[in-house]
Amino acid sequence: MSGRFARILRRPEVGAAVAALLIFSYFSSTTTAFLSTAGVSTWLYSSSLFGVLAVVGALLMIGGEFDLSVGAMTGTTGLIVGIMTTQYGINIWLSLVVALAFALSVGAANAYISMKTGVPSFIVTLAALFILQGANLAITKLLTGTVSIQGMSDVENYDTVKLLFGSTLNIGGMDIKISIVWWFLVTAVASWVLLRTRTGNWIFGVGGAINSARQVGIPVVKVRMGLFMATSAAGWLVGMLQLFGVSTVQATTGLGQEFSYVICAVVGGCLLTGGYGSAIGAAVGALIYGMTLQGIVFAEWDNNWLKFFLGVLLLLAVMVNLYVRRGAGDRS
């Protein structure tokens, strides 16, 4: 009995699920807006944008690496599509593909540099973050004279693409943004890959003990390269969800969000040191982020409390994870 109970507690998602439940109960009982259909769709939408990044970023973290540049990447990809279509009249589908190709090549470059030189990916992607953020603003100003993209909705085929990335479904009287569907889809696929495929086994192996992984013949470089590229692709997806969700993009998109997906993943049970974590946990972490972000607005608190609260949550999560790791007998 106690053994089974302990095992359930040790699952990486459980702590986050309990926290999510507490936050949900708190805001639903203290504010009226939180549980209204409009309220629910608002915090689900917020969560979904963090969630896609958090879930794919969690796979990367389980594989033992970081990518801080992915938040800025959401801005960069949105700007690429926005500028190509509105300024140069280039076909929107082609622009989407170019933006994706750009994201994938930045992911590959991050992976290549950090693996070739041995410089921690934390530093390499921090550099990438600054490069992208700077370029986002400077190039957008240079080409458009402003810091945001206007006139997106006049672009040919805009409505077709909006169906994919920016539409709203009405389910049971509730407005469900399509990004929420993407979030669930990405979480399901990521969780399946992680737990039920060979690739998932390799991700755990590479993040948990890289030398052992090499010795048993896992293609370590390929696994990490794939993870970095997947993370950048997730940045592209979120970039598109934002661009087509609101029909505009600011050159400052992603500013200050470098760590938010890392926080979601860690709150969801990922170890900062790699080798342990869960995709569903990261999705729950993003749910906590989204609920808190909107709940604080509904409760009419000063929204600076969000960062305060996230800091506390992160600290708690790291302590719980540390305890779990010791309990799991990691003696290395």
Partner: peptide
């Protein structure tokens, strides 16, 4: 079988 056993402790 080498000394570090090529195992991943957390798995």
């Amino acid at each position: 079988v080498y000394q570090d056993l090529a195992v991943v402790p957390l798995m």
